[in-house]
């Protein structure tokens, strides 16, 4: 397939996934209203999305309404939900032929609907409904590609984009909240505030229920970290994402007659660490240091994939 097509599909999937992650992030920040410092909560959401500095250049103070708008509809924010969708459609349109009709219709229909949204749709009263729409849209897209794409290169590049983006998002959300998960003096006490804060980490990746099913005990910080970094059952964990990434890369290597590159080595090394790692070791090394390393290496992996296939 054309290198440009691989690039367009990869970024189409990344933009759709990013849009979905942003919706979850905003919902999580909203759910903390009244529990902890709202400004703090929104600042960490902005940081997790990587747009906190840009926000500060645009506004003087962090308010829930402004921050939510910046993340969702913000024209000045190149990776707001609406801009992600806009970019996704540009990617899709650039390579119409590489998409199935259902995939294209999911993206295009979503884009048409987004054009009808007004400022009002992002007001506190209607934001939740709009975010529901975003998640439906992303589900429609992944449903469309899962059920209609041939299992050829095109498919593996879409999957690769999805999971690389998801790994990046999970690592970022955790890193913004890592201080909450560090062992603290008060952790034995299990204060109400701690409970909410740890839960908020789970909420940002829609994993509150998942936690209960996996651990069947009260929310403990090291479990939260383990769930999101090392557990294979958790679909947004780094481990699960990297299992998918290595699988996609293996499939691509097979299609290309066994040709592999630095991307394969790097992805394999990260996946092996995640598969055999222990959460106690991660806390020993330093949670923040570990997460920062994963963020950097995930970015490096994206560059290597691009080097190998997209130019």
């Amino acid at each position: 397939m054309l290198s440009r097509a691989a690039d367009a599909l990869f970024w189409l999937a990344r933009n759709m996934e990013r849009m979905d992650n942003l919706a979850r992030l905003i919902e999580a920040a909203q759910s903390m209203a009244g529990v902890s410092s709202e400004a703090e909560e929104w600042r960490s959401a902005l940081a997790a999305a990587g747009v906190d500095e840009l926000y500060d250049e645009t506004y003087n103070a962090v308010t829930p309404d402004l921050a939510a708008r910046f993340l969702s509809s913000g024209g000045a924010n190149p990776s707001s939900i609406i801009n992600c969708l806009e970019n996704a459609r540009v990617n899709a349109r650039a390579m119409r032929t590489a998409l199935t009709r259902d995939m294209w219709e999911a993206v295009n229909q979503g884009w048409i609907e987004s054009r009808k949204l007004t400022e009002n749709n992002f007001s506190p009263a209607l934001l939740a409904e709009t975010l529901d729409w975003v998640r439906t849209l992303s589900t429609r897209f992944s449903g469309a590609y899962e059920t209609t794409m041939l299992r050829n290169e095109n498919y593996w590049f879409v999957r690769l984009g999805t999971f690389l983006e998801r790994a990046d998002n999970t690592a970022r959300i955790l890193d913004v909240k890592y201080h909450l998960l560090l062992p603290q003096e008060s952790s034995g006490v299990g204060g109400m505030l701690d409970y909410y804060q740890w839960t908020s980490v789970l909420r940002a990746v829609s994993a509150v229920r998942a936690y209960q099913w996996v651990y069947r005990e009260e929310v403990r910080p090291w479990n939260v970290a383990e769930l999101m970094i090392l557990r294979t059952e958790m679909p947004r964990s780094l481990r699960a994402c990297y299992d998918h990434i290595t699988y996609c890369l293996d499939q691509l290597a097979e299609i290309h007659g066994g040709k592999r590159g630095e991307a394969h080595r790097l992805a394999g090394a990260i996946a092996a660490e995640l598969r055999f790692g222990r959460i106690s070791d991660i806390f020993q090394t330093g949670l923040h240091e570990t997460l920062t390393t994963y963020i950097d290496r995930t970015k490096e992996l994206g560059d290597q994939i691009s080097n190998l296939y997209m130019r």
């Binding site: 397939m1 054309l2 290198s3 440009r4 097509a5 691989a6 390579m95 119409r96 032929t97 290169e153 691509l252 290309h256 040709k259 296939y309 997209m310 130019r311």
Partner: peptide
């Protein structure tokens, strides 16, 4: 799409030794 052939732009094609090629993942 209907013909099942690649849709290319100028950036996708390159001429070497008076022959035309497209840049692919392979």
């Amino acid at each position: 799409d209907e013909m099942g052939v690649e849709l290319v732009e100028g950036v996708d094609i390159i001429v070497r030794d008076k022959k035309v090629y497209m840049r692919t993942t392979d």
